[in-house]
Simulated assay, not measured.
Amino acid sequence: MQNLVTVFGGSGFVGTQVVRQLAKAGWRIRVAVRNPSLGYAMRLHGDVGQIDVVQANIRDRDSVARALEGATASVNLVGVLYEAGRQGFQAVHVDGARTVAEVAAAEGVTRVVQMSALGAAADSASKYARTKAEGEAAVRQVRPDAVVVRPSIVFGPEDGFFNKFASMAQVSPVLPLIGGGTTRFQPVFVGDVGKAIARMVTDSAAAGQTYELGGQAVFTFRELMQLMLAETGQRRLLLPVPFGVAGMLGALGDVMAMVLPPPVTSDQVTLLRSDNVVSGSLPGLPELGITPTTLEAVLPTYLYRYRRGGQYADQEARAVAGGHA
C-alpha cells in the first residue's frame, strides 16, 4: 500500500466515495470525523487494516494535528449547507479549512485537497458561497500548491437533493419553484467526484489547480423536478414562487435551523438567484480522464424507492394492465 491520506469528513455522502476510490488506489486511509461511532462501516470499503476511523473536529486544532500525524496527504470535505450553533459558515468553511491547511503544512503533508463549491466567489451575496471562496483563499495562503475542487449539485443514492424533493412529493401535492425554477444546474455524479478527488491526491500535476466538476448536461431547476417526478411516477403541481416570497420562507427556515434541518434558508434562496454551472475556463472531469455519468443512468437506481410498489413498480403496472385486458 502507498502512504497515508487523512480524509476529513470522510464518512459523508461524498467522503464515502472518496475513501472507496483511494482504497482502490492502494492508499492507507485515516477517516477523520466528529463522531467516529457513526463511521464504523467505513472500514468495510478497504482491505483489513487499510482504513482507520478517528475522531477530529476541524474547529479543534489539537484533534486535527492528531488526525494528520504521519500523513502524506490531506483531503478536507467538511462543509455545512446552513448554519446551526457552532457549525457556522465562517467557523467551518474558513477557519476550519485554514486550520487543516496550517496543520498539514506543519506536519509535512505533501498534498492538500480542499473541497469548495461551484459558485464560490468573494463578492457573492450568499454567505455560503462567499465563505467557500474565503476558505479557498485561506488554504492557498498557507499552501499555494493546494488543490481546490468545486462541484455543482452532487447526485447519487444518498444525496440531499433528489431524495429531499422526492420525499417532499410523497406528502405534498405542490412543489415550489423558487424564482420560477429557471436557475440552471450541472449535476455531477458522486462516484465521479470520488474518482476525481482520488486522482487529485495521486497526480502531482493537480498541485495548485482549481477544478470545476459538472455533469454532462445543464438543467433548469424546473427540469430537474420534472425528471424526479417522472422517475417516481408522481404528478405534482410545480408552483413558481417569487424570490421575495421565498425569502420570507427562508427567514422561517433560518429559525428552524436551530433545532432541525430546514426545508430552505434565506441564504439558499440567495444562492438560487445565480446559475450553478461550470465556467469552462477551469479544468474539470475531462482533464482528469473521467467521462461524466448522466443523470438518466443513475436516477432510476435509487429513486425507485419513492414509486408506488418500489423496485417492483413496473411489474405491478404490468399486472394491473393485465387484469384490465
Rank of each mutant, 00 (worst) to 15 (best):
R199W: 14
T301N: 09
V188R: 05
G289H: 13
T232S: 04
N276R: 11
T182W: 05
N276H: 08
M168I: 10
L249V: 04
Q209I: 02
L303M: 09
G289R: 13
L237R: 12
T270M: 14
A251W: 15
I290L: 14
V255M: 12
V201S: 14
M168E: 01
G191A: 11
Q311W: 08
A246W: 06
Q216N: 06
V269C: 05
L282T: 04
L227T: 10
M225K: 03
E212P: 00
T232C: 04
M248N: 01
L295Y: 15
L175V: 09
G247C: 06
T220V: 03
L213K: 02
V188M: 11
K195Y: 02
P242E: 12
T293Y: 13
E212D: 01
G284H: 03
E231F: 12
R308N: 06
G215Q: 05
G284I: 05
A166S: 15
P187W: 11
P176E: 02
V245T: 04
G214V: 09
G208C: 14
Q209M: 13
G250C: 07
G247Y: 14
V193S: 08
M248S: 09
S172N: 00
A217L: 11
S204Q: 11
G181N: 08
T291S: 11
E287Q: 15
N276T: 12
V193H: 10
V277T: 15
P242S: 09
P176M: 10
T220C: 02
D254H: 12
V218Q: 11
F243V: 00
L175H: 07
S274L: 08
V259T: 07
A166K: 08
D192W: 07
V269I: 07
A198W: 01
Q311E: 12
A297W: 01
V298C: 07
P300N: 15
E212A: 04
T232E: 01
Q268V: 03
P283H: 12
N276Q: 14
V298L: 05
A230Y: 08
R305H: 06
V264I: 15
T210R: 02
G247N: 12
F189R: 07
G250D: 08
V259H: 03
G214W: 10
Q311T: 06
L175P: 04
L213V: 02
G181Y: 07
V277S: 10
P242H: 12
L175C: 07
T202S: 14
M225C: 11
L285K: 03
G284P: 00
L177H: 12
G181I: 06
M200A: 13
V259P: 00
A297N: 10
T232P: 02
A198N: 03
F189Y: 15
V269M: 08
